[in-house]
């Protein structure tokens, strides 16, 4: 894959670059809800990862194969029983957490199958979302493009919510990147960041 492809993809999905920065060369990666395989294809280019995706949609299975990404068709909601414990260095859930129903068991499964987990999700605490609510509307934006009646997002959360969740579930947060568009947000991230990416492991 050319450098041009990398920069194009990174521009489309700024969380890709943040995730890639954490993943060492040649790591084994499982990408849950991998869509058309863009992230894995990106990581295969940047980090030469040994990657596999999990996807439920028929069209995305074909898209992944066309993207030369290994993909396993399956439903995340029924767990990761098809994967052995500690089989991967990293298990990624990119922009999918908020759309999972069985979020708690899935997070535990991620850390059974992988040494570390990486999650990215839209920050519901982002100021524009708060403004929408204050004005009396459900937020609709580039990061949250759905209407209330057609959204797949059943478990939206803020940065604070996610960090509390990790604490309560004995999940240790190793790293965090908060972004709006492609700029990193350091000041007041729960207010000014639209997307968050976390890297975590089991607390011992």
């Amino acid at each position: 894959m050319s450098t041009h492809d990398h920069s194009t993809l990174a521009a489309t999905r700024p969380d890709f670059a943040a995730i890639a920065a954490w993943i060492p060369q040649g790591a084994s990666v499982l990408d849950l809800g991998c869509g058309d395989g863009s992230l894995l294809r990106y990581l295969q280019g940047t980090s030469k990862v040994q990657g596999y995706g999990v996807e439920i949609s028929d069209d995305n299975i074909v898209a992944c194969i066309r993207n030369q990404v290994n993909v396993i068709q399956g439903d995340l909601e029924s767990g990761l029983s098809g994967f052995e414990s500690n089989a991967f260095d990293y298990v990624i859930l990119s922009q999918t957490l908020q759309a999972t129903r069985h979020t708690e068991p899935l997070m535990q499964e991620m850390l059974r199958v992988g040494r570390e987990g990486i999650v990215s999700f839209p920050n519901f605490g982002y100021w524009r979302n708060r403004m929408d609510i204050l004005q009396g509307n459900m937020p609709v934006s580039e990061v949250l493009p759905y209407q209330w009646y057609d959204t797949p997002n059943v478990h939206l959360c803020t940065l604070h919510d996610f960090e509390t969740f990790c604490h309560d579930n004995k999940i240790y947060i190793l790293d965090r990147r908060v972004m709006t568009g492609d700029s990193e947000i350091r000041l007041l991230p729960n207010l000014l960041g639209s997307t968050a990416v976390y890297r975590f492991k089991r607390a011992v």
Binding site: D58, C64, V71, I72, Q73, E84, A87
Partner: peptide, 13 residues
């Protein structure tokens, strides 16, 4: 997967 072989799997409806 256990043997780290490249594999894709499609479950056709």
């Amino acid at each position: 997967l256990h043997n780290r072989l490249k594999v894709s799997y499609a479950e056709i409806t």
